[in-house]
């Protein structure tokens, strides 16, 4: 498991490739990845830049806990999470979640679980700036991650 929270921009596809090269060859049957990127609109309002605040230390701790939880629930080989903080621009990757597993079902389930729980637990906060220079804190994520988490917990119980 590797969790990185960084201010610098990153190329998620290079991160996936570099991490995969560190894994034992021939053991995994696939990698499932999710890359979250910044949109230029939110709730009908144009957004020109975004600032991501975080709680250093607590953020890493809770993402690591979510990855460990996923590894307990599903038969996966390894996971990688990279998350930005600081100033972001439209199209910038915000987050990468990648999961290596022997079989695809575990990879898809674990990847979805990690991003859903990360959104629910990891202490990050988005502040958007409009083209007119107005700033506002985003009060909640647009999708209801709770509902997706509930679905997954049900799926895990019945797996």
């Amino acid at each position: 498991m590797k969790v990185v929270v960084q201010e610098a921009a990153f190329d998620p596809y290079k991160e996936v490739q570099a991490f995969q090269e560190s894994l034992p060859r021939g053991k995994h049957g696939g990698v499932v990845s999710f890359v979250g990127t910044m949109r230029d609109i939110n709730e009908g309002v144009d957004v020109s830049t975004m600032y991501l605040d975080h709680y250093p230390g607590m953020t890493e701790k809770h993402i690591e806990a979510v990855c460990a939880d996923a590894a307990d629930r599903w038969d996966i080989i390894d996971s990688l999470v990279v998350h930005r903080y600081g100033e972001l621009f439209p199209n910038d990757p915000i987050v990468l979640v990648a999961v290596w597993s022997s079989h695809r079902a575990e990879g898809f389930d674990a990847c979805r679980f990690i991003i859903n729980y990360l959104k629910k637990k990891a202490p990050f906060w988005k502040r958007e700036t409009t083209p007119e220079g107005e700033q506002r804190w985003v009060e909640h994520n647009s999708r209801d991650a709770k509902a997706e988490v509930a679905d997954l917990e049900e799926a895990a119980r019945t797996a």
Partner: peptide
């Protein structure tokens, strides 16, 4: 002790 609003990462 930390106080903060609902989180909005990812």
């Amino acid at each position: 002790v930390a106080f903060f609003p609902p989180v909005t990462g990812g």
